[in-house]
Simulated assay, not measured.
Amino acid sequence: MQITYRLATESDLIEIIQMLSDDQLGAEREKFERPLPDSYTRAFASISADPHQELTVAVLNTEIVATFQLSFIQYLTYQGGIRAQIEAVRVKAEYRGKGIGKAVFQYAIERARSKKAHVLQLTTDKKRPDALRFYESLGFIDSHAGMKLYLK
């Protein structure tokens, strides 16, 4: 299985949003319709213009089978270190359980290393216990308590 990775283009948005909305939590958050709401196009433009953001798609043959976003955060601690944050990781439903998620994370880990990040972090919803077990199997550890304040 030869997966290739590339930065997403605007023409990939429909497939990306479809993947993001293809589970119980995503269906509650996303608005997958054709045409897509303009908010997705605006967000894509902002992400694409930011050199510290990488919205990536994984391609098998010619089909997009997964997506994720890496953010590279420069900060002062760790002697001016870089923290990589991975978000919005999704594998198309028909490709789940086939090793694509693991391959995506291996690629993302190497990408973070290549940008000199000293840590790759993620958050996962507590309503996704299978995802938590998957991340732990990749070597991620539950090291911090995360908190959110929703600004609606």
Rank of each mutant, 00 (worst) to 15 (best):
Y107L: 05
R34F: 15
A93C: 09
N61S: 12
A58I: 05
F72I: 12
D125Y: 01
I47T: 06
V57W: 02
R111Q: 08
A117Y: 03
Q53P: 11
E28R: 12
L122D: 03
R128L: 15
P35W: 01
S46Y: 06
K102Y: 11
L36V: 11
E94S: 14
V89E: 05
E33R: 09
S46H: 06
E54T: 06
A112E: 01
E28W: 04
I109W: 00
Y40S: 03
A108K: 01
I64F: 01
E33P: 08
K126T: 15
L36F: 06
K102R: 15
T62C: 05
F68K: 00
S71R: 06
R128Y: 09
G80N: 05
V104H: 02
Q74I: 11
Q53A: 10
F105I: 11
V104W: 04
G81T: 06
S71V: 12
F72P: 15
Q85D: 10
D125W: 03
V89G: 03
D125R: 02
V59H: 00
T124Y: 02
L36S: 07
K31W: 07
F105K: 03
S114F: 01
P37L: 01
G80W: 00
R113Y: 05
K31V: 15
T56C: 05
H118E: 06
I73M: 14
A27Q: 14
G26Q: 03
V119L: 08
R128C: 13
A43M: 08
L120W: 02
V91L: 03
T77G: 10
E30F: 14
A58R: 00
R29L: 15
A112K: 00
K98G: 10
A93I: 10
E54M: 06
L76K: 04
G81K: 03
A88F: 04
K31Y: 11
V57L: 04
E54C: 05
K116F: 12
I100M: 06
Y95T: 09
Q85R: 12
K127L: 15
L76C: 09
E54W: 05
T56G: 04
L60C: 09
I82Y: 04
A108E: 02
Y95K: 09
S39N: 02
T123M: 05
G97N: 03
E28G: 10
Q85N: 11
